[in-house]
Nucleic acid binder design. Structure first.
Lengths: 333, 333
DNA sequence: CTGAAAGCGCTTACAG
DNA sequence: CTGAAAGCGCTTACAG
């Protein structure tokens, strides 16, 4: 508990000035290799670790970044967080997590707290790409990167590529020989819903049937019911807007004796393990690579903090199809 | 981006020394109310916010705490985190989230990074109360609190009260008039499983049937199958070890034409919204109040950091029964 | 090659 | 009631 060892301690133990000790440890300055080694050895023996606050006071860098999110559920933010942390810990950067719900006042408090702590940058994240956090992050004295949430026009924003992800999913169904594919998805006011539907229609034609509803299992059930009662042929491929809907669809099919994947192939979206892998059969689904997105966001905010040039605007990161069993044996399988 | 305003700026703008400015802002020292007000007003106008690194260097307090966890999935850690953050933001304390998987090396790196940043304390958390994190947190120069993970004998540890929670659940079934209650739960090597089973047996007698399996929906299905094929009477109450098992049980019952809650009442554990509320019917389940647990952990680590006396040992926080529909109308409903 | 000194932005005895 | 000065633990021009 008592005083940690300071650079003063290693300097005197090594018989040098603190200036030399500092330089030896930081690899700066010029000195005999012998001196440098000795200082390093002594520092290691004493378990010396420089006080980041003292360093920060000088360098104006705290080696911390803040992650602000309104995704209290953590479904999207956690993977993003993991990616950020993974990318930054190597540089000795730690990350503050601030869950602000949808409360502007709480958001402001957290931003102020982070600013007080001289964070090197802030990453704003959320649960959908077409909504802003309830905080104003412009004109902050630190760089801001938006990840999986909407930012101002000239900001640095990273999102997953919904169009490309949906394209992969539908293409997969097509390559499996599916002819009558429908799209069961969430509320139309989500940009993701519109983008995914566009990709779907680009592949199946403008006549493609898009059923918008909620992001829930229940809606998946209801959609199957609607498809069956509509009188037309039951589709042989269903591309779902998320894994919960897909699970509802799969369950509903099973309950009606429709075999997945024999009679109908189902694709989900999100690769939310807890849903995708326990569905029977496990879901083939689209992974948004949120961890990678987080990693990029971390690296980007750090680059900005270090004054490196960063291209502004929206950067879309590719999604990836994860093949499980809900589509049957595929061309790649 | 350019220089934030420093205390020097407000001092000169207010026409006082920086010493006076500091005291005015901190409410310390004695001075005319007029002077204090003037300084405060000027500080507000200039948007002055003290540099936490400079303060920290003096006070040896960083107003940060670290949360270490191996629960990458966030199911338990997120609510704990939310509670910690909620309790501490009022004191201006921000929290570092460090997900260390089960990697000792990664854990050490994160601990060192936090220590460098002079965290005021560390909260260790995890996904089960009878496992330790793969890091040695003893003999750290900062206080440590264990929340929902096992700590050393003389540590400060907070856990939810599994026995009491299970007791509430089974008592509820009993009060609904259920006679033949079984317990379907997870692997026996979990302390939680044993504690909950004890509470169950205390209420239904030593003959109570405990089926141990996995923490999965699939096991819930399998358990129902086993109960039916065993030849005995189908139970009229099933207390499940977690919500996933409960969902499996409920689904399996429905598939077999057994009506929940008419024929059998089902109780879950965890109150994991995403499972409990989408089960048909929604699950009555036990909430471990992890947010409260987090809040307590935050307050406790802060108290320790401030040198206040804190009782050591294991503190159990009560669980709470959340009544939904899987047990039918109840005495309290 | 190495050290004495200044300074990062604050707070707090110590004087007056 | 208020200010000049020292100091928290470092780093980095500036001298030698």
């Amino acid at each position: 508990m008592a005083g940690r060892t300071r650079i003063y301690d290693v300097a005197s133990a090594a018989g040098v000035s603190i200036a030399t000790a500092s330089r030896a440890l930081n690899g700066s300055g010029r000195m005999t290799a012998e001196t440098r080694e000795r200082v390093k050895r002594v520092a290691a023996e004493l378990g010396f670790r420089p006080n980041a606050m003292a360093r920060g006071l000088l360098s104006n860098r705290s080696f911390t970044v803040g992650l602000l999110t309104n995704d209290s559920y953590g479904r999207f933010t956690l993977p993003v967080m993991a990616g950020i942390s993974e990318a930054l810990i190597d540089c000795g950067v730690s990350v503050f997590l601030c869950a602000i719900e949808d409360d502007p006042a709480l958001g402001a408090v957290h931003v102020d707290a982070m600013l007080d702590k001289q964070v090197d940058g802030i990453i704003a994240s959320g649960k959908r790409i077409d909504r802003r956090l309830p905080v104003d992050l412009s004109n902050l004295p630190v760089p801001v990167v938006y990840a999986f949430t909407e930012g101002p026009a000239d900001s640095v924003t990273l999102v997953s590529d919904d169009f490309q992800g949906a394209h992969e999913a539908v293409e997969w169904l097509l390559r499996l020989g599916r002819k009558r594919i429908v799209h069961v998805t969430g509320p139309e006011n989500f940009a993701s819903v519109r983008l995914r539907a566009q990709a779907y229609r680009k592949l199946v034609g403008e006549g493609g049937e898009v059923l918008c509803g909620e992001w829930s299992e229940l809606w998946g059930h209801a959609a199957v019911e609607r498809l069956l009662s509509s009188g037309g042929d039951m589709p042989d491929g269903i591309f779902c807007g998320n894994d919960q809907i897909a699970r509802g669809v799969v369950d509903a099919c099973r309950e009606r004796g429709i075999d997945v994947p024999r009679d109908v192939s189902v694709v989900g979206f999100d690769n939310w393990e807890i849903v995708a892998s326990v569905t029977r059969p496990p879901l083939t689904t689209v992974d948004m690579n949120l961890r990678t997105l987080g990693r990029e966001a971390g690296l980007t905010v750090l680059a900005l903090a270090e004054g490196k040039p960063v291209e502004r605007g929206i950067r879309k990161l590719p999604c990836e199809l994860i093949v499980r069993e809900s589509c049957g044996a595929g061309p790649r399988a």
